[in-house]
Design a protein around this nucleic acid. Structure first.
Lengths: 197, 197
DNA sequence: CGTCTATTTGAATGTACTCAAAAGCGGTGG
DNA sequence: CCACCGCTTTTGAGTACATTCAAATAGACG
């Protein structure tokens, strides 16, 4: 079992170099927490107060539409950040739900401590800028997939993007992520992929 | 007609405070450029070399799918940045096209100059971090709209999000942005919105 | 076991697409 | 000024991909 704090520092270390004092400052401000499967970290209507870094297991964020259907926005396995960013940034009631899909551990930091980190370690701005750039690219690609690909193609993309996750996830959640009903995904997987290649 | 450089500094000034020397450094590294309607800034397969800030008019970025259909990813009116981020960040051939939908002017900065700016004005990391946070939220919301809303609802959202643009854009481009065929959007607008509210 | 949820299957339906063609619109050049 | 061209919008008819609702089956967990 890896040390959560080591994981966080390693994650940050991919983008910037921190001195020992800085590393201590960072680790000193994050709190460990664990979640059981299906346990909520955050629910629609609440105001999110902290940044969350997943250190083991896997969380997900999703919205519930006006027909009661879940739409998964993000899976966050080990080494990923997850949040309702709108709620966090503007301190308004969130539209997302975030829960654990496996037993998970995470590191949490309150927004005022986070701001202190940005003040005392300006390099962290860079770290998160770089992360966010990747995040934007990812969402752009997913959006284009949804605009231009068939359900089957989106499923194939998903398998390639999350080769590990796909084995652990219930079909229902894959369906929710790629934007089809569970019934339709079930039929699709039974059907031989039309070989026109 | 506003000064493009003043517009850029005003834009940056919303997030951070620059001294006069810093402002000069910034403006010294951006080059002005103008585009006629339908003129390309960037085409699929090229490698994007510069960051682009729109100072008048409006650009768009879009991808072309394997059936030849355009899918608009972004409109960039005055005061917005636009890029094929994947191409820019990884220096790989891009999948997007970027062109002007009106006569437009913009400010451009090469990646090495941009890196110099980040080095000499670390605060800029913060500025772009904040921008990117908003960008992620926007793409997340658009993705959720595409996963959970009907074509009509997406159209209504679009009208609210871009009240000015909607008056200037050909229907075809709105259709491409919200993810329907132009034929379907045409029919939809002719149909009375079912009043069940 | 029994319960709860996920998956599968069936039949009917709907939303949005395809292809084809006509009509409208704007610009350009003779 | 009008004729023509290219592009957008509209209209029609047929179709497909995916959903809905209902019910049966299978799996997981305590």
């Amino acid at each position: 079992m890896k040390d959560p704090y080591a994981l966080l520092l390693e994650h940050i270390g991919r983008n910037i170099n921190l001195g020992p004092a800085e590393e201590e400052l960072v680790t000193g401000l994050f709190r460990e927490r664990s979640l059981k499967p299906k346990q909520f970290l955050f629910q629609e209507g609440e105001i999110l107060k902290s940044q969350v870094f997943v250190t083991s297991g896997c969380l997900r964020s999703y919205a519930i539409d006006h027909n009661g259907f879940e739409h998964i926005l993000q899976f966050a396995p080990e080494g990923w950040w997850i949040a309702d960013m709108q709620s966090l940034l503007d301190q308004v009631p969130g539209k997302l739900n975030i829960d654990a899909i496996q037993a998970s551990t995470l590191l949490q930091i309150g927004m005022s401590d986070m701001e202190r980190l940005y003040r005392e370690i300006p390099q962290l701005e860079r770290h998160f800028r770089l992360l966010l750039e990747r995040s934007v690219v990812t969402y752009q690609n997913r959006l284009l997939d949804n605009l231009s690909l068939s359900a089957r193609e989106r499923y194939e993309h998903f398998c390639r993007a999350y080769p590990t996750l796909i084995r652990e996830l219930p079909q229902k959640q894959v369906a929710s992520y790629i934007g089809v009903t569970p019934e339709f995904l079930s039929r699709m997987l039974r059907q031989p992929a039309s070989r026109k290649g």
